[in-house]
Design a protein around this nucleic acid. Structure first.
Length: 271
DNA sequence: CTATGGACCTGAATGC
DNA sequence: TGCATTCAGGTCCATA
């Protein structure tokens, strides 16, 4: 479930508990998407100074170096003082004086990567192509519109690529386009200033709202501790193929764009 | 350079 | 019931 809102809610859920803690050691299970890039021992005795987020990456700033964590498609983090032994899909444990941070990731598209600093080529390779932070001031409309004008690809694909603006994955890209009443297959370059403005606002609104909703739902997810606890998505279009549009009641449609499902309302969303 | 399709991996849901 | 196919919230990489 990790798009920007879920990553941000996850970050907030353990940042206070781990900041200032000292790492006692770390454990790795099966390989993740990329190797850590250093012996596990580089982490030992380091202090976690801050937990930040860039796009869908979590950045654990240590007193020496930085740990980049990505949740991939199926990853989630658990933080606690007394975790059970790692299960089949737990692949990384960071033991600290404040508790253990555990990466659970059945598909293993996630990653934990160590770098000397954010200037380290290993970190830069992962972060340098990322687009604007949608909830920050640097996500400004003129730059957004200018970037879109240079892309002939479908706007949905451009959003997913994450090099114009980060954070909206398959769910929230569909939701934002619905809110902005833009057809997902519209070439990005064809969006007028006004429509880019609607999309700009929609992206922010959808992500911000999901963070607020995610807070309560994730809390009950962690208390369920591995139980059914799937949090309820309140979507307008995503996953609603065939169901009536909440605005116009026509059936929500599903199509394929770049190997991903896109959901949209053909009546509300225009080219 | 941009755009597109394949790759990575596992489990759940669907289809015959 | 059993087995095969499809699909899933991401993104890097090779290829046109």
């Amino acid at each position: 479930m990790p798009e920007l809102p879920e990553v941000e809610v996850t970050r907030r859920s353990f940042a206070d508990g781990i900041e200032g803690a000292v790492i006692a050691g770390a454990w790795q299970g099966k390989p993740l998407r990329w190797p850590l890039g250093a012996p596990l021992e580089v982490l030992t005795a380091r202090t976690v100074q801050a937990v930040r987020r860039r796009g869908k990456y979590l950045l654990l700033h240590l007193d020496q170096g930085v740990l980049l964590i990505h949740l991939g498609m199926s990853g989630s983090l658990l933080f606690g003082r007394h975790l059970p032994p790692p299960g089949a899909h737990d692949h990384f444990d960071l033991h600290t004086s404040g508790g253990t941070l555990r990466l659970h990731d059945p598909r293993r598209f996630g990653a934990v990567v160590w770098a000397d600093s954010l200037a380290d080529p290993r970190a830069r390779k992962l972060l340098e192509r990322l687009g604007a932070e949608p909830l920050d001031a640097d996500f400004d409309l003129p730059a957004f519109h200018a970037a879109l004008r240079q892309r002939r690809a479908a706007i949905k694909s451009v959003l997913l690529a994450g090099d114009v603006v980060v954070g909206a994955g398959n769910i929230y890209a569909c939701e934002a386009l619905f809110l902005a009443r833009i057809h997902p297959a519209t070439p990005a370059a064809r969006l007028s200033w006004q429509r880019a403005q609607r999309l700009h606002a929609a992206i922010r609104q959808v992500l911000q709202q999901a963070i607020e909703l995610g807070g309560s739902s994730l809390r009950d997810f962690s208390s369920a501790a591995g139980e059914s606890g799937h949090f309820q998505l309140n979507t307008s279009v995503y996953g609603r193929a065939g169901q009536p549009c909440h605005v116009c009641a026509s059936a929500i449609r599903q199509m394929r764009q770049g190997q991903r499902s896109t959901y949209f309302c053909a009546r509300c969303q225009h080219f």
